[in-house]
Amino acid sequence: MTLAELAEASGAPARTIRYYIARGLLRGPVKGGRDAAYTVEHLERLDRIRALQSEGRTLAEIAGALNGGQQKPAAAPATAWWQHAVADDVTVWVRADASPWRLKRIRAAVDELARRLRPVDDEQGKEEEIR
């Protein structure tokens, strides 16, 4: 398919596709010049990029992950941590230098953990009150 057709099929504008190619997220067309063509592989790659973006990954991270599954560079040692007392017997440590987007995801997960642990605590509390 042509670049215009790939753009139509993927929903990604042609300019964005060229940008991804320049960044190494996507291979260039299979032929050059007037015969430049794009394949289903390109389409699948674009879907994968979009999925990874919706998980909060940056294009640089996605390029690393897609090109031979390279690991992300080792994270720098944390300089600060938040501690969250989820329950009396559970504390969660979270790197304070996570991105705001990542912190939102973590918040949801910590909320969920706290919620799942809470009913037991609440029931115990009620039992203690009854006694």
């Binding site: 720098a76 300089t79 938040w82 969250h84 706290a114």
Partner: peptide, 24 residues
């Protein structure tokens, strides 16, 4: 290092303390 972007998370799980290194 986006530590200054960090936020207090869940109200159900209040942060107990911040542990800063001297570098920060």
């Amino acid at each position: 290092d986006t530590s200054r972007m960090a936020c207090q998370v869940a109200s159900t799980a209040m942060p107990l303390q911040m542990d800063y290194s001297s570098a920060a």
